[in-house]
Design a binder for these strands. Structure first.
Length: 997
DNA sequence: GGCCTGCATGGGC
DNA sequence: TGCCCATGCAGGC
């Protein structure tokens, strides 16, 4: 046979030809991954599909197409992809298969584990393995069995297949070359295990079994059950429930998928509900793609169904991946397995631990711990070479892919993301795809079913009804696409709700990558850093509740109330799904009428509207048609500071509650909180949800297009140096930073002199710290209250600048890194801890809080665009980073810092700015006081002039130079206590607690 | 000191 | 109880 001959030079690969030619043509793909180089004549024959007719006429393995009778050399590599196996037995040429729209998702290459001994010792025949991916013995060993699989598969699908009953080895043509690769034992095993066909597609998504094609959206429309979902769904049943669907049911094919053909490996579509342990020897199993396989109990040497992968490894390829993978319409994609990246996997070690069964099933067998190089292609078509190897572990093996770091980085993956392994036929390439964590929210809905534990597959979109609770999350999920393609029609509301809960929790930063089929399987106990602190979970859940409160039932369509386990759930018809409403504050006015306060999105003033009005998510004064006098942003706010404070009782309540728990928190835990918040912020942003595992990543990923200093500089400092005259962003930033630093130091020196005298003037009472703490918490809470989760500005509203700043901070890997590294730094932690013991520091904080000017300053600084820019650029500034870093290394600096850290023990302030640390330090106490005095004087002057200085911006030192430490806005909020017509900042309102007034 | 390698450990199932 | 596998970690480079 042709493939048995080695190609040499320009000799035709066809052993029956061997013609020497200058230029060869590509033929079939060889096991090595290369293509058979053929002469023109043979190449033409191959292209015309007549190669076997010409050269293999006398070979065995010829079969007739059940439809057209065409003879196909099924036993040959050359014709391997020109036919499909029919469920009823026999074969059909691909042309007929296309015509008849019957696509039998015969897995082209069942898992090799079916053919290989399952113990590690199976791996003896390494010599027959070619290290090139995708061309391993699996397909080739399996191939022979394809030729004679004449079992009535339909029957087998519905009956328990019994081993060794349907296929006789005598029926198999074993004379073909591929089989020669098998040892006698393997051959026998292979014969005993009825092998099914290949998966050849090209047929637009018409799914014989409802599995292949992954055209889930369509499947949803026309099929009553999605078997692969059902496989989850029934995972706890004791008997198989195959849930096979009839392919003809799914004929509406989206054009986008028309070219995509997917071979679903057994695990993906395996509707086998039996737990692994139950799928043992002789039990009937249904193979991939729903096709029955007769599996010999013999192969289950250890009594476990090793050919069954755990559900968490079942591939869930996305439409996007399919599209990317299937650019070639002739490609057939066989999803093999997937794995969620652990911190270790995504770490810098570059080792990706492979699930043992997956490794043994889909990768070449290896007997040498050194393993084999494995070529893999990513979704972009770039090829990567990994080392597939193992090491002995407890009488077993641990399989790893080494050298994956570049690839993982290239794909911008991190812990929690999922890598998928697929195979493209006929090339046999191994393809490594990925799913970002954010998509897992949707793609894992099936797996959520596993998490549910009730065994019922759940899918947010499966049902035509939506629970109010999950609407938003599900909507988000739907947008992402994948979930909409996987459906189980018979989804109970309960499951859906439960799942939704999971989704919500995940979506809100609750370690979204966790799939809890195996408790902590992905983020196990050792994955401390990957977990969000329980406290944060509570807070996040509260946020969910708040979010739910934003749901507004549509005017049309009353919900159906169902009671599940004592809890009432409202369900709405899909077209009447709840909408996300504007957050309001319900209140009873003086007349005893129920009203609600709503905040204008533009001016952030609070307006009163009747209680029964459903407000859109975006509401502005102009929508205030019921109160024409206040239907413009220019109209004064009738809500006074006191009122606002009264309306927000939860601020104080929450702060007390948090205070209690906060004191129990250690500083490390707060890191989780920080991360959670960061994740939440990112989630809100609607972009890729950075995994909580990000906390474990030393080098947070930089986004494409990131213009931060890290990204725009050549790696490792290599590359051309910037000239002194260079005015690029980097250089400008560096220069600006330098200038700022110099100004700051100058100022610091001068202020130091006044420190001693000023310090005496400050009221010192450590006992009042709690009030300050309260206020800070109130501010935080108020920020939480805000729909934007942002900082409240002086108008009692969210300042967009602040939001942008916060957002960019969270987006900025440097910023997060800095935060993270600070916490990692024991010095930093000590410093934080000791700060609360420092009376100077406490008094400074206290006085700052007592002083409305100070508060305003703190808040207004974030309003200052210059200031924000400066802050931001500082983070991007390598000098700045270095400076910060060196400061930490500097014992003097640490000494100074030691007494200046935040008094908010156990709580990190995302607002914290490095520069502000300086301001808050004892060394700059006088600075604060000076500023306070200065501002008071200026304020007084302005007040005398016209009293309207809102938004006026001055520099703390009076200089025109932007100075991060001095960017101060004296805003009108300072007069908030005297001007009740002005919106009161919630933070200020909070500070007006009775004991403060 | 940092990285790599190979193995050990231990929690989860 | 045994297996899986995420992670720790010692030792070498």
């Amino acid at each position: 046979m042709a493939s048995s001959a080695a190609a040499s030079g320009n000799a035709c690969f066809n052993s029956n030809c061997k013609e020497f030619v200058e230029k060869t043509r590509k033929g079939w793909r060889r096991r090595t991954g290369e293509f058979a180089e053929l002469c023109d004549r043979c190449g033409s024959a191959y292209d015309d599909g007549k190669f076997c007719d010409a050269f293999h006429l006398n070979s065995s393995g010829w079969r007739s197409c059940e439809s057209c009778g065409k003879q196909i050399h099924c036993g040959c590599i050359v014709s391997f992809h020109t036919f499909v196996l029919l469920d009823a037995g026999g074969i059909e040429c691909i042309a007929c298969a296309r015509k008849s729209f019957i696509l039998t998702p015969n897995p082209a290459w069942p898992p090799p584990s079916l053919f290989l001994p399952l113990q590690p010792e199976r791996i003896k025949d390494v010599n027959n393995w070619n290290p090139i991916a995708g061309s391993g013995p699996v397909p080739w060993r399996q191939a022979p069995s394809l030729f004679n699989a004449s079992t009535n598969q339909n029957e087998l699908q519905h009956k328990a297949p019994f081993p060794e009953t349907t296929v006789s080895i005598d029926k198999l043509n074993l004379s073909e070359r591929p089989f020669a690769l098998l040892s006698d034992n393997n051959r026998k095993d292979s014969c005993e295990k009825l092998m099914i066909g290949k998966l050849k597609i090209g047929v637009p998504g018409t799914l014989e079994n409802g599995y292949a094609g992954f055209n889930r959206e369509e499947a949803h429309k026309s099929c009553t059950s999605a078997p692969w979902q059902s496989s989850y769904a029934n995972s706890d049943l004791s008997a198989p429930s195959f849930c096979l669907t009839v392919g003809s049911a799914c004929k509406n094919e989206p054009t986008v998928h028309s070219k995509v053909s997917v071979s679903v490996p057994q695990q993906t579509t395996l509707p086998i509900p039996l737990p692994l342990g139950k799928q043992l020897g002789g039990h009937a199993t249904v193979d991939s793609a729903g096709e029955t396989q007769v599996r010999s109990s013999k192969i289950r040497g250890d009594g476990r169904g090793k050919n069954q992968l755990l559900p968490r490894y079942w591939p869930r390829i996305t439409d996007q991946e399919l599209r990317r993978l299937s650019e070639d319409s002739n490609s057939v994609i066989t999803p093999l397995f997937e794995k969620m990246l652990s911190a270790s996997d995504a770490g810098r070690i570059g080792r990706l631990v492979l699930p043992k069964k997956c490794a043994e099933a889909y990768f070449p067998p290896i007997s040498n711990p050194e393993g084999l190089p494995l070529k893999m292609q990513d979704l972009k078509g770039k090829e990567w070479m990994f080392q597939f190897r193992f090491w002995p572990n407890n009488n077993s093996r641990m399989y790893v892919l080494e050298g994956v770091t570049p690839c993982i980085q290239s794909m911008q993956l991190q812990a929690g993301d999922i890598v998928t392994f697929s195979r493209i036929e006929p090339e046999g390439k191994l393809v490594m795809g990925c799913r970002k964590a954010s998509n897992i929210l949707t793609t894992d809905q099936g797996s959520e079913a596993c998490c549910n534990g009730n065994g019922v597959a759940t899918n947010g979109n499966a049902s035509t009804k939506h629970t109010k609770f999950s609407e938003e999350v599900l909507a988000n999920s739907t947008k992402k696409g994948f979930s909409s393609t996987t459906h189980v029609a018979a989804t109970s509301a309960r499951d859906e709700t439960k799942m939704s809960d999971d989704l919500v929790n995940e979506s809100l930063g609750n370690n979204r990558p966790i799939r809890c089929k195996r408790k902590g399987s992905t983020m196990g106990s050792k994955r401390k850093r990957l977990r969000v602190d329980n406290d944060n979970l509570v807070e996040l859940k509260v946020t969910v509740v708040q979010a739910q409160g934003l749901m507004r039932p549509p005017s049309s369509g009353a919900p159906t109330v169902i009671v599940i386990e004592g809890c009432e759930f409202e369900e709405y018809e899909q077209e009447d799904a709840p909408i996300i409403g504007r957050p309001t504050i319900s209140h009873m006015d003086q007349l005893g009428e129920k009203i609600q306060w709503v905040q204008c999105e533009d001016c952030f003033k609070w307006r009163k509207v009747p209680d029964n009005v459903d407000l859109p998510s975006r509401w502005t004064c102009s929508d205030n048609s019921r109160d024409p006098e206040r239907s413009m942003c220019s109209a004064v706010q009738e809500l006074t500071a006191d009122h606002l404070r009264d309306l927000l009782p939860h601020i104080n309540k929450a702060s007390k509650k948090r205070k209690a728990s906060k004191q129990e928190m250690d500083l490390v835990e707060t890191l989780d909180g920080l991360d959670a918040l960061a994740h939440l912020a990112i989630l809100e942003e609607g972009e890729t949800l950075t995994a909580s595992p990000q906390a474990t990543t030393k080098h947070p990923r930089h986004r494409p297009g990131c213009t931060c200093i890290v990204c725009i500089q050549p790696p490792s400092g290599k590359g051309p140096k910037h000239k002194q005259s260079c005015d690029c962003n980097v250089c400008k930033s560096v220069k600006r930073r330098f200038k700022t630093l110099m100004l700051k130091r100058e100022k610091k020196l001068s202020e130091k002199e006044a420190e001693a005298t000023c310090q005496k003037l400050q009221p010192q009472s450590a006992g009042q710290l709690l009030d300050a703490d309260d206020i800070q918490e109130s501010i935080d809470d108020a920020a939480h209250l805000s729909p934007q989760h942002g900082e409240l500005n002086n108008e009692g509203s969210v300042d967009p600048n602040y939001l942008n700043e916060k957002k960019s901070s969270v987006d900025d890997p440097n910023y997060l890194n800095e935060k993270k590294s600070s916490v990692d730094d024991p010095n930093y932690l000590n410093e934080k801890k000791s700060s609360v013991d420092d009376p100077n520091y406490l008094s400074e904080k206290k006085s700052s809080v007592d002083d409305p000017n100070s508060l305003n300053e703190e808040e207004s600084s974030v309003d200052d665009a210059n200031c924000l820019n400066e802050k931001k650029s500082s983070v991007d500034d390598p000098n700045y980073v270095d400076e910060r870093k060196s400061s930490v290394d500097d014992p003097n600096y640490l000494k100074e810092k030691k007494s200046s850290a935040s008094p908010f023990k156990g709580e990190f302030d995302l607002n914290a700015k490095p520069e502000r640390d300086d301001e808050l330090s004892p060394g700059s106490d006088s600075g604060s006081m000076i500023r306070i005095i200065k501002r008071a004087a200026e304020q007084y002057v302005r007040h005398c002039e016209n009293g309207s200085s809102v938004g006026n911006q001055i520099n703390g030192d009076g200089a025109g130079e932007t100075n991060p430490s001095n960017c101060v806005i004296v805003s009108g909020s300072q007069q908030a206590d005297v001007d009740h017509n002005r919106p009161l900042p919630i933070s200020t309102a909070a500070s007006l607690a009775p004991n403060d007034q």
